[in-house]
Amino acid sequence: MSIYDVKVEKSDGELESLGEHRGDVLLIVNTASKCGFTPQFEGLQQLYENYQDRGFKVLGFPSDQFMNQEFDNQDEILNYCQTNYGVTFPVYKKVDVKGENKTDLFKYLTEEKKGFLGGEIKWNFTKFLVNRNGEVVKRYSPQTKPEKIEEDIKGLL
């Protein structure tokens, strides 16, 4: 199985194959709107703006699994991200990133790059960097600010 075989649900409920991003460098992030790390949206957006024309994308996946730090309504999530942080990168449907209902994407990512807790996601804003060949090359902790990832991204572009 490849990351390009995984299907994800867009914010409008439509299914999308990650195969649509084949050839791009991806930074996949589990996000939350009401978390201490939420200001990282600003840095993620800046990376996206700086490198999207070179084949780089940020993909945000909201999750409510860490102290209920995400809105219930998908429209509220999108509105919050756009209004407060100017987010223009794709923000997908809210998902489970750990536990028995973990989505296929996060099953794949956490198998490819185990973290401090084995395969489980520790907290909001865990980040996975995927190269142009669809290989998960690095996993970053929630504390890692987006600007600290920039050199790794540039190295893959």
Rank of each mutant, 00 (worst) to 15 (best):
D96M: 03
L59D: 09
E135S: 06
Q69T: 05
K10G: 10
N124R: 10
E16R: 11
V58A: 02
L27T: 13
Q74W: 13
G13E: 12
E135N: 10
Y85A: 08
Y4T: 12
Y85H: 14
F128H: 01
S33T: 01
T126S: 10
K122I: 11
I77T: 08
Q45Y: 06
V136F: 01
Y48M: 00
V25L: 00
V8C: 08
G55M: 05
G155A: 14
K57L: 08
P39H: 13
F61S: 03
P90R: 13
V58F: 01
V29Y: 08
L109V: 13
F61K: 07
N84M: 06
D24G: 01
G99F: 15
D75L: 14
K148F: 11
N133R: 11
V58N: 01
V130G: 00
F56E: 05
D72L: 03
T83I: 12
L26T: 12
L15M: 06
P62L: 12
P146S: 12
V130A: 00
I121C: 04
D12C: 08
K127T: 11
L156R: 03
E112M: 05
D24I: 05
L157Y: 07
N79K: 15
G13V: 10
F71G: 05
V136Q: 01
G119V: 04
S141W: 05
N131T: 11
G23N: 05
L78W: 13
Y108F: 14
F61M: 06
R139T: 11
L15K: 12
F41A: 07
V25S: 00
Y51D: 03
M1K: 14
D53L: 10
Y48F: 04
L157S: 04
R139V: 07
E76A: 15
E120A: 11
T126C: 07
D24P: 00
D96A: 03
T31A: 02
K148M: 08
F116G: 01
P90S: 12
K148T: 07
T83Y: 13
K114C: 02
K114H: 06
T110C: 09
R22V: 12
G55K: 10
L129G: 02
K148G: 01
D152G: 10
D53A: 13
H21T: 07
